[in-house]
Design a protein around this nucleic acid. Sequence first.
DNA 1: CTGTTAGCGCCTTCAG
DNA 2: CTGAAGGCGCTAACAG
Lengths: 342, 342
Amino acid sequence: MATIRDVAKLAGVSVSTVSYAISGDRPVSASSKARIQEAMRELGYRPNAIARSLASKRTRILALVLTPEERGIGLSELALITCAAREAAEKGYHLVLWAMKTHDLSELENQLAHELVDGVILMEVRNADPRIPFLRARGLPFFPFGRDDTAQNESFADTDFELTIYRALTHLVSLGHRSICLVNQSAETLASGYGPVVRAHEAFPRMASQMGLDFEELFSHADPLIGYGLCAGRLAAHPGTTAFLVMNDKVLSGVLKACADSGRSVPGDASVVALASSEATATMLIPAVTAWEMEGNALMGLAVGELIAKLEGKYLEVPRRLIPCRLVERSSSGPAKPFAGA
Amino acid sequence: MATIRDVAKLAGVSVSTVSYAISGDRPVSASSKARIQEAMRELGYRPNAIARSLASKRTRILALVLTPEERGIGLSELALITCAAREAAEKGYHLVLWAMKTHDLSELENQLAHELVDGVILMEVRNADPRIPFLRARGLPFFPFGRDDTAQNESFADTDFELTIYRALTHLVSLGHRSICLVNQSAETLASGYGPVVRAHEAFPRMASQMGLDFEELFSHADPLIGYGLCAGRLAAHPGTTAFLVMNDKVLSGVLKACADSGRSVPGDASVVALASSEATATMLIPAVTAWEMEGNALMGLAVGELIAKLEGKYLEVPRRLIPCRLVERSSSGPAKPFAGA
DNA sequence: CTGTTAGCGCCTTCAG
DNA sequence: CTGAAGGCGCTAACAG
């Protein structure tokens, strides 16, 4: 591998001139620049990332902190990870993966001590996330994916659940639905402070009652059979129910089956719409499920972009960006029809 | 951050002694060692990864090469990624993620030029994978996850599909099934040389006919409706079919529905068993699907372990390890019963 | 068993 | 606009 000295020698300039020609941090005459470029091409020169990091005290490496144990990671997370890697690479950064528990700050500390990364992206951020004050105290740049309501003045990139739920409700109402059931995640997950669940729990009843709807919120563990039981119960008690909003991918097949087993066709007699879901999940089932899908790429692009901007000092205001989910209509939703009975 | 010089000063020894005390590459007296340890604790010293890399010409960073566009990545891949990160961290290595296309060697070249990583793990390896000769020529240590039949004398870690299919067949036969249908992936995927599909296509008919079974292999695109149509067709043409072996997660719900719609209960009248699937997928449906699940952790542990062994010179023979899938019985399989008709 | 020292490849101040 | 030179923090000869 050619070094910067080889390039300097071949181009007939000093090392520093080559360095500045590459970084652009100091003007370099056109003729020098040309000879340097030529020499670099000829030698196939590529600056050594490690040496550059040591000298500049910036590694251009970002860490993506995952918490795989906590909540079963889903398909959407996978897309986020590869998106983060892409986004970082595009901007000349590398991405390392750290898998650790939210509460185990010592693991985090251990990795940080290596001084291998310039900054960190935190996945699965939840309310009262201990990693946020920890990183803040340590002075290490970071960017949370998701938000922590208890962290004031912190930037974030997150799905706009409020707006998504509002739109989801409006969408169903415009199709004539007046009796809508939200299938949220478990009460335990709600209690843990997991943002999406907390926000849906807060927004859905409020908006549904403002719209004058007949509504109910169900809490289901991540098991289709449990969701099935809950929805079957709802349909039995409130046969007028014509739509389910499902914020719980694991339970989708159960909701569909509850409709079918009660004699309802989907989307004829009942609509099933997934919330904050992903294409991969929604298209696994029959019928393919209409879903409000997370704008993962945009969100992760934002997170990585803002973190890098922070690192490079191009960071002006504190960005707090919310992006609503995008509606993808498939075959599980349609106009409301009064149910004639099984 | 304290440096090695601070530690040396405080412990009253030279820097090299500290260095050797840490690496163990040279004997150090017990008393020195003790004072060094104390000094390190006091200063909270952690060696700087970058400086260490530059001096030793080993970065202790591995790259995991993903090809997200090529085949829709599934849940199992996600588990593999976090497992790789874990495994690497445990051995003192970092893992960076590179998302790129199999055929675009220039992207790979670009990343390699940074000399940031000591070695590479290749995901989604397929037959005639161009990355293998490329890395071999470049002399960069690597380990393929999956195998390339055209690469001779290359090591690998892969699922033992032959054995898995043999066992899956035996399992069904022992339950009394004599008419079994394999739902493989699409003909295009087969043609692309994707290992699991190629191997299933090779092994299933051979073994099934050796066992004297009535069998058929179906090729389905990754769409549940297509799988539904194919299976419905099979059931109509061969009503004696009592079991489906499904090597295509996306189509599982369609197979289940085809059974149900033809008046068959699962697992009463028909068994549905997933091949090379994952828990996350198998438990999304009703009934929960009996599945032969990939031993992802073991496989990835092997890949990372062998790559690191290679890097550290503890590498003896060429490891070519095959691990069969593990059977997890759920609610979609059971004894064969002659079908009485709908 | 221990210390001294020359790099690793690059960045960046300082001097010109 | 350019060059020389001193590190960045650590490893690994080399010399005891």
